[in-house]
Design a protein around this nucleic acid. Structure first.
Lengths: 136, 136
DNA sequence: TTTTAACTCATACTAAAGTACCAAAGTTCT
DNA sequence: AGAACTTTGGTACTTTAGTATGAGTTAAAA
């Protein structure tokens, strides 16, 4: 967040400087008009691209924010969420157990409570529901 | 495709006109320098945004094209793909059988061959692999 | 008209997945 | 320290999933 503000601030500052410089250059006639116009065009072209990308990634972040709230809303614990992610990766209970250094029965417990909390009958349905809740 | 080329052509033409006009305006001194610079900046800013969006939507289309080719490449038949989609929706073999008016054993046959073709051990892994292949 | 490929279905298994119930150990908050 | 919750794990059992194999049907291509 702070980073974004800083970057945008710097950007605006740079643009204002460019603005002032171009005005000065045109009036004093040090540079050719074409060059200045082209420079402004190019700079603002890329600024447009940059801003657009920023706003797109911002909307992604917004979705990511909804996620965490939804997870809390569904009362899904940290471990359960971890297991959910592994399920979505296509791992079996045994493989998840190995990766998290837990027993398979523990994974089964987590999976069962996940299915209840997500109102799913199967792990595959848990994946689709989780995605519809924008949790994954 | 033709539409895109047309739009881009018009855009470039408009920009060249703007370019020439700004040159004329600055030299003849009809308009204030600030206004012209601001106008160029704004126009190119939005052009940047526009181009960026175009390129993003283009890449989406490309991904959609890869899909069908990849399905053929993996030698996945129509029915198998249909079953794959149902799996991704989180349905059980029984439910898929009911929806497609087939027996459960037929679905099992399709699922098994899908797992082989996608090189997956489980239906959940089939989902993730299919998505990585941009098939779903 | 064969042949090929896709689609269908069955049986008999094995292997996972999932349920139900219980219980101990560890955290966190008061 | 005690309450409340999370995490962990076990047993026993039921239900799906998945494999292997074989076989009949259909539609299109050679």
């Amino acid at each position: 967040m702070k980073k974004t503000i800083l970057v945008f601030g710097m950007l605006i500052l740079a643009l204002l400087l460019l603005f002032q410089f171009s005005k000065y250059a045109i009036i004093s006639g040090d540079l050719k008009v074409e060059l200045i116009v082209a420079a402004i065009a190019i700079v603002f072209f890329f600024v447009g691209i940059y801003i657009n990308k920023k706003s797109l990634s911002k909307s992604d972040t917004t979705i990511a924010n909804i996620n965490k709230e939804k997870i809390k809303e569904l009362d899904i614990s940290n471990r359960e969420y971890e297991v959910l992610q592994k399920i979505a990766e296509g791992l079996s209970n045994k493989e998840i157990a190995e990766q998290l250094f837990l027993s398979e029965s523990t994974i089964k417990t987590h999976v069962s409570s996940l299915l209840v909390k997500l109102d799913a009958k199967r792990r595959t349905q848990a994946i689709t529901k989780a995605k519809s809740f924008e949790i994954l």
